[in-house]
Design a protein around this nucleic acid. Sequence first.
DNA 1: AATGTATGTCAGTGGTTACTGACATCAGGA
DNA 2: TCCTGATGTCAGTAACCACTGACATACATT
Lengths: 196, 196
Amino acid sequence: MMDPDKMSSSDRLLWAAINLISEKGYNGVTTQEIAAAAGLSEKTLFRQFGSKQNLLESALDRFHYAEEMRTLFQEKLVWELEADLLTVCRTYHAVMNRNRKLIQISMKDEAQLPGFKERSRQHPLQLLDFLTNYFIAMGERGKLIQTDPRLQAFTFMMSQFGAFLNDLEAGDNYPDIALEPYMLASVRLFARALTP
Amino acid sequence: MMDPDKMSSSDRLLWAAINLISEKGYNGVTTQEIAAAAGLSEKTLFRQFGSKQNLLESALDRFHYAEEMRTLFQEKLVWELEADLLTVCRTYHAVMNRNRKLIQISMKDEAQLPGFKERSRQHPLQLLDFLTNYFIAMGERGKLIQTDPRLQAFTFMMSQFGAFLNDLEAGDNYPDIALEPYMLASVRLFARALTP
DNA sequence: AATGTATGTCAGTGGTTACTGACATCAGGA
DNA sequence: TCCTGATGTCAGTAACCACTGACATACATT
């Protein structure tokens, strides 16, 4: 995880806020709780952030997504379906897992976050476009069946998105299915479905 | 939707509670709001349900899932992969959509709902077992490749689960992708991947 | 007419909570 | 040593909110 001792006061507050709000929701946590979890006084929280709402919004600014995905499609592809899908898959889960708690917050407290949803929706849309174009290009090279690249890309994305969210919420509900074997199996399945 | 005028008082309260809590979360709604949305007084709410928490729990009792899924695998299968997957797919989305708002509540307010998560996790697990057994049986009939039926079933489930949740949260974010064409395309894709 | 049942109104109560102001403490740099 | 800046303490405020009790109303059954 992370060591609160080495962080600045505001970082510790953001860290505590993310942890608690992702668990209990914005309205389920008090500013006292957050301050206590950060090892600071409530007063410091308000001095640093002014309001609880602003603390939440500052926390949400830690959401990072796009960079890796953008470079992914320009650098790491080898134009071999199964290998590329696995690369996409791994990158996707890495990014999603890094933002795990922020995603939980945005699901629970969308009502508190005007505009955030709209912004964060751009990211999967971009990925969908990238993947679709990749499928089209692969089709032109004769390495992919030519039917409906956008829906195929969407299906692949949804299978990964579903697995991520399932893991996020259910966690240990499927003790026999870990993420890593799932990635391999699902990528193999899609490769078999899409190879001519 | 539903017409509140024709419902009993407690049904109207439950209906209003489900609507509001699914939008704003348990702690984001007041009992006054709920009563007003039901066209009743706050006093009636407490007379009927005793507490806000009990109102929520009563609302959650409206969660129905398993019956259709259970009969599905005993009656409606025709042992033809693509047709059967489509049947499963449709039934799954029908059930999930009927429980739409309750699922939203359970995601937002798991903290308020001791035990509910555990209970509702049984359902997808059952479906996974059913699907896995179906794949095994299909494999024995030579109608399915024999590799890893459980992971394959899980991948199919996750692609549908992901699409459902994506629709639940994003809604109109993918204007060019509707649920019905997605079901057809994804089922076709899986059928191609799993057919020998 | 009498009674019961479901509802409404109103005025609370006690607890919680975001947020504030005044003042103290304490460390580090000038 | 003095000053500065970040923090803590404490007491408090104003709002909100789940929940209650007393009483009235309206309607249906008997």
